[in-house]
Amino acid sequence: MSAISVWAGGAVPARGRGGHSIQRRVGTLVGRAGLAIATVAFVSPVLLSVEMSFRSNTAINVAPLAWPKSLSLSNFTTAWSAGGLGQALLWSAVIAVVSVMWLTVAGQVLAYYIVRRGNRLASVALLYVMAGLAFPAPSRLLPLYELMLSLHLIGNPISVMLFQGATLTPLSVLIYRSFLQRMPIEYEDAAYVDGAGHLQVLRHVVVPMLWPSSVAVASLTGIMIWNDFFTPLLLVGGSTYATVPVKIYTFVGQYTAQWGDIFAGLTLAVIPVIIVFILLQRHLVEGLGAGLKG
């Protein structure tokens, strides 16, 4: 009973569900406990990597999965100073923020055009953009690099922003498109009747109503940009604008790797991700309240 009611409880508010309140509460509690246990099991490998960041490289080599005998912060200081993580965090953040902004603005507008225009040209545009999902990154590498060279952007963080903004456009469009298709057009129609232009409709109707999908776009592409390693290495590796992953993986050698340092860097790198995710979740709720029900 309880498990199913948690399952299907859905967006339906609890009102109008009188009776069996104690039974229900106990059921919910048991359900929650089960869920919490499953969650801990699911994330245990992540916890393991955090735990490894407090152990020396030697200790990790001897017993990768053992409990730490003593907590050491030396990996963090190594990763921070030798890896130059402070600066890398700043540039990772700038690159991620700018790229995500582009993806939410340009992706949303592009998807709006594709869905609401609805003619053959729009279908062609959709197919054209979808093709960007299809071609594996290594095969595009050489022309991309030569292009950036001719634009004098190698070693400049703008190159990474341009690349990320362009590469993740298909995913962004795909997400916005599917939610736009579901979105009632009546709100837009009403705004047009009131004399609003496309940009005004976008700003006052579409953007607020698409807020949940913007959160999805931002969190998915943001994570991918934050973790992307290969292209930033090629475009800004060796410069002062190297991103966090570029710095972290310098600890991976031909035959050996200093995993303690890598995990310390990773633990530091994951903190901003957690903060952003928490903030986005709050906005998800707010956006719904302000948009759909407003």
Partner: peptide, 15 residues
């Protein structure tokens, strides 16, 4: 610039 072994060849060749 220290590059992990798995990415070394493709990075250097492209450069």
């Amino acid at each position: 610039t220290a590059i992990p072994s798995n990415n070394y060849q493709s990075t250097l060749l492209t450069e």
